[in-house]
Design a protein around this nucleic acid. Sequence first.
DNA 1: CCCTTATATACTCGAAGCGAGTATAAGGAG
DNA 2: CTCCTTATACTCGCTTCGAGTATATAAGGG
Lengths: 332, 332
Amino acid sequence: MPSHPGSENPGAETAAVVDLTAAIIAVSNEEPRILTVGEAGRNGGDGLDSLPSGPLEPGDRTLEAGLRRWVERQTGQTLGYVEQLYTFGDRNRALTGPAGPRVLSIGYLALVREARPAQAEAAWKGWYRYLPWEDWRDGRPEVLDRLQPALVEWAGRAPTKDDIRLRENRLGLTFGLHGGSWNDERVLERYELLYEAGLVPEAHRDGAAAPPECAGAAVDTANPMTADHRRILATAIGRLRGKIKYRPVVFELMPPAFTLLQLQRTVEALAGVRLHKPNFRRLVKRQGLVEETGETALETGGRPASLVRFRQEVTLERPAPGVRLPIVRRTG
Amino acid sequence: MPSHPGSENPGAETAAVVDLTAAIIAVSNEEPRILTVGEAGRNGGDGLDSLPSGPLEPGDRTLEAGLRRWVERQTGQTLGYVEQLYTFGDRNRALTGPAGPRVLSIGYLALVREARPAQAEAAWKGWYRYLPWEDWRDGRPEVLDRLQPALVEWAGRAPTKDDIRLRENRLGLTFGLHGGSWNDERVLERYELLYEAGLVPEAHRDGAAAPPECAGAAVDTANPMTADHRRILATAIGRLRGKIKYRPVVFELMPPAFTLLQLQRTVEALAGVRLHKPNFRRLVKRQGLVEETGETALETGGRPASLVRFRQEVTLERPAPGVRLPIVRRTG
DNA sequence: CCCTTATATACTCGAAGCGAGTATAAGGAG
DNA sequence: CTCCTTATACTCGCTTCGAGTATATAAGGG
């Protein structure tokens, strides 16, 4: 056990319980999905969905091994691509009060190729069900019509004039209000802003930032999740949206052979934004991300598309292969 | 306490000790520095440097609060910008054997404005002292002359021909060997590769990946650190190098007023790469990152340079303001 | 058989960004 | 006054990117 200089009470280390939580993502039918386990039937649950999770156990040699063990036990899924996201450990975020043991939850992002039927308790759900304001594929989502006035009002409730301007600027950067543009990667910032504004039920549940004046909870029409799982989901989406732009991770979600349009639809589903078709094709081809299989897909409805597969070699060639996305301007 | 479905032994949660470790960075005299606390005088220490760190205590409401408390106690530094990096929890990384309590260490990156005289035990050290192969400002560092043959030999030691090609490709991507280019952000990947190759003493100390045939430890002329602190430093540098390109974090390290060349030298110090002066100026100006103070710096040695300050407003205006860097091509 | 429709695929154009180089301005030292 | 040093401004060419348009190839209906 390491001793630390400056420690007045050497035995004061917190004995923490480490919780491992996975945001497992797949894409099917042009819809990004998240693997959830229902909370309804047990624990006096409130019917909210959860992410697969469980405590680290002494037998786990690595954190990732513990995560894989839990996910397989709870959902039957074997994980491929896994990446650590963030470690949460604030007192108010934990389920236990200040008296109970410290709970540390480590969030992970995992990608799996296909949404095969999961175990009884587990289910794949579209992720925009939990964060509907993130889906701009069919234009500005209507949830924002309800959210926007509440957000603007929240900005106006700031104590000083400077604080009001600060909040308005934050709204511009995150939600594209006041002339700002929509940035698909700022998923977590948007969620945290809604949390701060008291517009998601989690904020009231945790007892943090719940001023009685705001009629917040009524505005959020999305499904919340247990504990801080929706925050972890938001973190995962933001990280994934960022990563597809400079690493070929989309292909972890694609079948062995696919058409370029299928690839585009998958990227659009993840990013929540529509792309310019000719430019997307040009980009993918110039980067050498795919190669033709020789076969064609006939079920397109129009001219048959040639099937392609991912070129594993690019991982070894180019320093930053990925699918760059356009900046959606002027959406406020 | 949450109960988890599928848990065969509900009481099997690991009681872990949480260690908070900070990589605190400042830049002075065109040299990036890291705040260290010496290990020499205590604990039967091996004379290695450490990063400020200490266990999370029950009184800490948030993880960051615990970190700030430790840093202030050990070094007298008050932290400004703080960002979580990664959580390490593997068995072999911990100081204790498989029998002892689980140690989880959470790494943080912190930026402070000036290297004011730290507390007795603490000291600012140039970070390239620990990772000398990362400094390409005066051309290719000579350490690589010693490292390169060992790396090439390590690649050749792979079991199969495919594995050899894989390792060679990794060398190309990380160290720019075999015709690859140098990417300043892959600091962690380079350190981990050296670790795997048994070329840093930490690998032998941990007992991981230490094949007796390699004369590894002799090659690494850099200073190691205690525990996994050098890995955390590598993580911090990589993250910082990436972040300055799309967020105006460099200014956390600058004095209130500075010249454009001073800014450029700071960026170069962090990135470990030289930049094209006219292009750097054009970039900073076009992005609107700075504004003139009206005063001039006379001690330049040539024509006086006008002093500028950071424009706080850009944080609220542009979605991704930062200092883009060139790609150094063909360095193998 | 031709026409419509739907999708795939190829090509073009202009604007912006960037790497690289060059020219001019304004201080100090001798 | 000349030289040296650094600051600052400008130019050129290449690449990338957003956006739009044109052509190819299937199915199906009259």
